[in-house]
Design a protein around this nucleic acid. Sequence first.
DNA 1: CGATTCCCCTGATAGC
DNA 2: TGCTATCAGGGGAATC
Length: 291
Amino acid sequence: MPELPEVETTVRYLKDKIIGQKIVGLDFDTPNLIKKPSPEELKRQIVGKKITKIERKGKNILIYLNQDYLLLIHQKLTGHLLYGKWQKEKGKWLPQEKNSPLFLDRQNRFIHFLLFLANGKMLALSDLRKFAKIIFAKKEEVLNSDDLKTLGPEPLSKEFTLAYFQKICQKSNKPIKTLLMDQKLISGIGNIYSDEILWQAKISPLRKANSLKEKEIKVIYQKIKVVLKEAIKLQGTSIVDYRKPDGAKGEMDKFLKVYRKEGQKCPRCQGIIKRVVINGRSAHFCPKCQK
DNA sequence: CGATTCCCCTGATAGC
DNA sequence: TGCTATCAGGGGAATC
C-alpha cells in the first residue's frame, strides 16, 4: 500500500513529466472516488487548466493547477498513479504498450480515473479496491480542509524533533505501532513501515507508547528516519499493490524483515515471526528479539 | 473525549 | 468444479 516512501517516489517520478502540462480531458468509471465536487463539475472545471506543481503531504498527492486550484489524490490501500498511454476497448482502458509493465502487471489494470494531458500522455489512477479519494477545489479550501490540516509533522522534516516524539510517546497509552500509524501525530507511516521500524528498533509493536524508556524512544526515532529514507532510495515496496508510475515495482520488497513474513525466521535472531492484530491492523514482529 | 465497531470494495483463499 | 464465507486494510463516521 502506498505510504510515505511510495507516494514520495510517485511524486518525484511525475514532477518533470506533468508540470507545465495542460489537462485536456478527463474520464472515470467510478464516480464514488470523486468526493468533491460532483464528477460533472470536476470535468467542467479541470479541463483547460495547467499543472503548476506536484507535492506530497503525508500520504496525499497534491497536484496544483493554475487559477489557484488544487487536485488532491489519496491512494489509500490499492491505488497508484500511472503515467503513459491508454486506449478504451469495450469500456475498459487498456495500455497501448503491450510489453510494458503497465500491460503485463495485473495490478496496473484497474484504471478508474484518467487525466488526458496536452502532450498526449495520460495520468491514470489504478485502484483494485476502489478506496482512493479524489478532491478538487480552490487551493485554500483544500489546504485548510481536515484532509490536510489535521496531519502531524513530516517524519523526515526538521519539525519532527526527538523532543516532539518523546512528548507524544509519553502522552499515549496506545501500542507504539498504533502511535506510529496515527496520521494526526506523524504523517505518512502505515502498516508496512511501522512494522519494519519497530523490528529495526528491537521494540515490540504491542508495547504501550508511554512505557518506553528514553533510550528506546530515541532508537525508534532514529529508525523512523533510517527506514523511510532507505525505502525512498529503493523506490518503495511493491509486495502488494503499489507500483511506480511507469508500472514497475519498487525495490524495497527484498529488504523487508518482518512485514507479511509470519512463520518465517527472523533474519536477526532466527526466532519465528508472529502476526497479531493491533487496533484492527495486522502487525508482524519477532517475539524473540523485539521486546 | 477516547475507545471500539462498522463501512467502503473486490481479489485471493479456504472450506465444503 | 464451483459456490459461499472470510479476510485484508487507510481512514472516516457512527456508536458506545
